[in-house]
Write a protein that binds this DNA or RNA. Structure first.
Lengths: 198, 198
DNA sequence: CAGGGAGGTTAGCGGTCGTTAACCTGAAGG
DNA sequence: CCTTCAGGTTAACGACCGCTAACCTCCCTG
């Protein structure tokens, strides 16, 4: 039997290339032959690993949403007892890491959701909603005066801000990963502060 | 001769519906038959108004970019002599108006650019670049200490923030257009301030 | 009242795409 | 050594899609 590691390596390789291609040209703009070529096999060979093209997108989107949610929950629990500000900072940091390191996934995440089968789309939306609600709770702990609808809007808008990484130029033209992360972090905190602000 | 108004009404109707459909399901996810059906004619009838499907997308994207740039230039000139802060506020206000009132266009604007022919894409990118540079100039007039690369990143990120309107729930579930616009405006100013801030 | 153009229609062509079918190969296991 | 099976291959099918061709029908105009 092939080791689990080897088997999932090929699968993960396919998912990674598919994510890149979907992000670049859109789900319908990429053919299975291209995805196959990107990993060195040809078109229909992909069907040994996935039941179809839709399944690749579904696995990507569910994976992203789940990862974001799981990471956020972990960060909140690890900061147990800490002031709410530091939990918010940790959430922001986690989201920025994701947005910088997995740009294609961040792009797909809010772009190709409507291409999913109903059941998958419902699952992804549920995970996304829980993620947003976690942020809203933490945000309102930091700014108790902030009403819930405004908090929700603020969270969505800050996601838009943080997810702008694909527009910041190709990696390398940036002032450096650390500087970019710090800038985004400051801006997110500034935006939240202004949303709640006097 | 049909009046210019009547002729362009049908064209504009097609463009409007095409924008909505492209934003909902992606350029490749919409067929010409659907676009035709959305305006009450059937598929190939569209070719009396446009040379092809690509041309509709091109006209939309060039139109958006041009409108944004023209509006921004007008606002800067109208505020001649006014403090830089008020020019920045005017730019933010203009962008928010656009993001709230033309959500499908704002969505297309940063999503389907790669589907354009080379010449059209170059034109759109040029208009977008000029728009960004105008913001960068105004922003650095407000915050002279802000370095140019950081200012450019900040502008792109604030665009991400302002362009989050499609994620804020359907119009009607919002706390009201005015309240939403004010919230976004405060957050944008807060983000810029934090980007420049100590 | 001819006639011509604007703006539709339906039929159909050619190409592309996702998927399936049928076949091959190399390595692991009894 | 034979079998099995994971993981490939190429050929081909059926559906769909963008676009063209051919035709029709008002309505405006000289």
């Amino acid at each position: 039997m092939a080791t689990r590691t080897d088997a999932s390596t090929r699968r993960e390789q396919i998912l990674k290339e598919a994510a890149r291609l979907f992000a670049e040209r859109g789900f319908h703009g990429v053919g299975v032959d291209e995805i196959g070529a990107a990993v060195g096999i040809s078109g229909p060979g992909l069907y040994r690993h996935f039941p179809g093209k839709d399944a690749m997108l579904a696995e990507l989107l569910v994976g992203i949403s789940g990862q974001l949610l799981t990471g956020a929950r972990r960060r909140r629990e690890e900061a147990d007892g800490a002031p709410a500000e530091s939990v918010l900072d940790s959430l922001i940091e986690g989201h920025i890491d994701f947005a910088i390191d997995d740009r294609p996934l961040i792009t797909l995440h809010d772009r190709e959701l409507d291409r999913l089968r109903d059941s998958d789309r419902k699952l992804v939306r549920q995970l996304q909603r829980q993620y947003v609600e976690l942020w809203v709770e933490v945000l309102r702990a930091v700014y108790p005066g902030l009403a819930e609808p405004a908090a929700r809007s603020a969270v969505h808008s800050v996601f838009g801000l943080l997810n702008s990484t694909p527009h910041l130029g190709r990696p390398g033209s940036l002032p450096g990963r650390t500087a970019t992360a710090e800038l985004l972090h400051r801006m997110a905190r500034g935006a939240f502060g202004a949303a709640a602000g006097a």
